[in-house]
Computed example of a mutant assay.
Amino acid sequence: MDLIITSKSAEQHLVDILGGKRSNWFPLKLRSQVPVYIENEQSQSIICDYIRGILNKIKTQLTFNDEVEFFCGCLLPEAISHGISELQGLSWQEAEDVFLQGHIYHASEVEEFNRRIAREMEKSPQQESR
């Protein structure tokens, strides 16, 4: 988590995604199970605030219907995969493979995680319409 937040390349990567750089996570692919690497609510809050800050300050041409789904299904996996790539010295594809093979949670756990992120996002000032 610290690497994702302190690394300027992680931020630039997310800015590039919002700017239209190809992402394997967007358009969103519905999954019943997704890997989640965030260990506790404090860490979750920190990483969500960080990514939300990027999302709030960058205009994007990407269109999405559900901001939470876009956040959880695209930006979060991109950030975590980027962190894995830097931390372990892996290629982007290898990092995505590690991410996808990571911890698997039941769909109900993923739904609870999404609800928590939705609550966190509701706490922030409303963004302009995309």
Rank of each mutant, 00 (worst) to 15 (best):
L3H: 15
I5M: 11
I5R: 12
T6I: 01
S7K: 02
S7V: 07
S7I: 05
K8V: 12
K8F: 10
S9L: 13
A10T: 14
A10N: 15
E11W: 03
E11N: 13
H13K: 12
L14T: 02
L14F: 06
V15M: 08
V15P: 03
D16E: 02
I17G: 05
L18E: 02
G19A: 03
G20C: 03
G20H: 05
K21E: 09
S23N: 08
F26D: 00
L30N: 01
L30G: 03
Q33A: 15
Q33M: 08
V34G: 09
P35L: 07
I38H: 05
E39Q: 12
N40P: 02
S43A: 13
S43K: 02
S45M: 11
I47A: 08
I47Y: 05
I47R: 05
D49M: 08
D49R: 12
D49C: 11
D49W: 00
I51G: 04
R52V: 13
G53Y: 13
G53C: 15
L55D: 03
K57Y: 14
K57A: 12
I58Y: 06
K59Y: 09
Q61N: 09
L62I: 06
L62V: 02
F64P: 07
D66I: 07
V68G: 03
V68Y: 03
E69V: 09
E69Y: 06
F70R: 01
F70N: 08
F71G: 01
F71S: 04
C74Q: 01
L75M: 03
L75R: 07
L76P: 09
E78H: 10
E78M: 06
A79Y: 13
I80E: 04
S81D: 01
G83D: 05
I84K: 14
I84V: 10
L87V: 11
L87D: 11
L87P: 05
L87F: 15
Q88V: 02
Q88M: 09
G89L: 03
G89M: 00
L90M: 01
S91R: 00
W92D: 05
Q93R: 10
Q93G: 02
E94P: 05
A95V: 00
A95Q: 00
A95F: 03
V98Y: 07
F99E: 02
F99V: 00
Q101H: 14
G102F: 15
I104S: 15
A107F: 15
A107K: 14
S108W: 10
S108P: 01
E109T: 10
E109D: 08
V110P: 01
E112Q: 11
F113A: 09
F113Q: 07
F113Y: 09
N114T: 08
R115H: 08
R115E: 04
R115D: 04
R115C: 12
I117K: 06
A118G: 10
A118E: 12
R119G: 12
